[in-house]
Amino acid sequence: MLSRTADSLYWMGRYVERAGNLARGMQVALRMAGLASSLGGGVDEWRTLLVAAGAEPGFLAKHKEVTPEAVIRWLALDADNPSSIANCIEAARGNGRAVRTALTVDMWEALNDTWREMRAQAPTAAEPDRLPQFLEWVRARTLLFNGAAADTMLRNDGWRFTHLGVMLERADNTARLLDAKHETISGEGSEGAVAYAQWQALLRSVSALRSYQWIYHTRLQPKLVADLLILRPELPRSLLSCHSRVEQVLDRIAESNGGRRGEAHRLAGEIHARLRYGRIEEIMEGGLHAFLTQAINRNIDLGREITAFYLHG
């Protein structure tokens, strides 16, 4: 496969996943913002979401203060934010269009229809009475695209690079969400009703609240929330699950291209091994924030190595 084709498929997968992750995060922030006053909490959900999305520096360069209206527009629609939902959908469609023949009909229709509907909805999407419906639409369209890819794409290098982009983006999102809430897991803010609501919100943002009950059969506990999102292989959005898939996909790509491997494969194996044999007690003892900061940085490093080895040929 040509490196430019692999690059377009990889980033198409990343941008679609990023749009869905932003929509999930905004849905939870809306819910928590409504609960904050009744719970007596002073947590700024919108600033937390900016941090989790990695969008705070760009936002503050344009806006003097954090307000719900400004954050919503920045994350959903702002053309100056390269990672806004609107720009992610635009970029995903652009990458998909560049490699149209590598996509199935169902994938292209899901992607192109989402792009057309996004342009139609954009003028009113951030209005208070339209926002919940818009965010649910984005989430549903992401699931539709991922389902079309999973059900209709040949398991060749095209599928592998698309899936690789999705898994790397998903791992990054889970680590950032958990890190943004690390004080309610291991810090001074880990007690009381507000903290409990924060744990619920965190699990909802990755569709894992019911999964927690299935696995642990107990009330929410901060250490177990962290364990679920970092080390449990059953959860599709845990760091372990994502990096297990990344290593497997990179191995399949190497096997289909003469067995050639590089730093990307070594780093993927190292990250996966650390998670596979990790223990939540040791992670908490060493500092959750430090662990997640390293996880985010290593994920970035892995993305760079994949780009250097496969995508810039």
Score class of each variant (00 low, 15 high):
I85C: 03
T101W: 12
D80I: 02
A91S: 12
E65I: 14
M107I: 13
W74E: 12
A92V: 15
M107P: 11
D106P: 08
L103S: 06
G58A: 06
L60N: 08
W74I: 07
N81F: 07
V66S: 12
A70K: 15
E69D: 06
H63F: 13
A53R: 04
E65A: 15
A102L: 11
L77I: 10
A110T: 02
R97P: 04
D80H: 02
E90C: 09
A91E: 10
K62T: 11
N87L: 08
E109D: 08
G94R: 09
E56C: 02
T67P: 10
L60I: 13
I85N: 04
A102P: 11
A55C: 10
V71E: 07
A98H: 03
A98L: 08
K62G: 04
H63I: 05
L75V: 06
N81W: 10
G54N: 01
V51E: 13
A61I: 04
D78H: 06
D106N: 12
P68R: 15
L60T: 14
I85E: 05
A55K: 04
I72Y: 03
A110D: 09
P57L: 01
A55Q: 09
G94A: 07
S83R: 11
A92Q: 08
V105T: 02
S84G: 01
E65L: 12
A110P: 08
H63N: 14
D80R: 07
A61F: 01
S84H: 09
S84P: 08
I85K: 06
D80C: 04
N112H: 15
S83W: 09
P82D: 00
V51N: 13
I72C: 14
A52L: 13
W108K: 01
P68L: 15
H63C: 04
E65S: 15
V105S: 03
L75D: 06
I85W: 05
V51P: 12
N112L: 14
E90F: 09
A110L: 12
V66K: 09
G96F: 05
G94Y: 02
D78R: 03
W108I: 00
A53Q: 11
A86R: 11
N81K: 10
L60E: 14
V105N: 03
I89M: 03
G54R: 01
N81R: 07
I72G: 09
A86I: 08
R100E: 14
A102W: 07
M107T: 11
A79C: 09
F59C: 02
L111T: 15
P57Y: 00
V99R: 05
P82I: 02
P82Y: 00
E56S: 03
S83M: 03
K64H: 08
D80N: 03
G58D: 07
A70S: 15
G58E: 05
N95T: 03
P57I: 01
N95M: 05
S84M: 03
E109H: 08
A61V: 02
P82V: 01
W74M: 13
S84R: 08
I85T: 02
V51A: 09
A102E: 14
E109S: 12
D80M: 01
A70M: 15
R73I: 01
H63D: 03
R93W: 10
K62E: 11
L103T: 02
R73S: 08
D78I: 10
P82H: 00
P68C: 12
N81L: 07
W108T: 00
E69L: 01
F59M: 04
I89Q: 00
A61Q: 12
N87Q: 11
E69N: 10
T101G: 15
R97E: 08
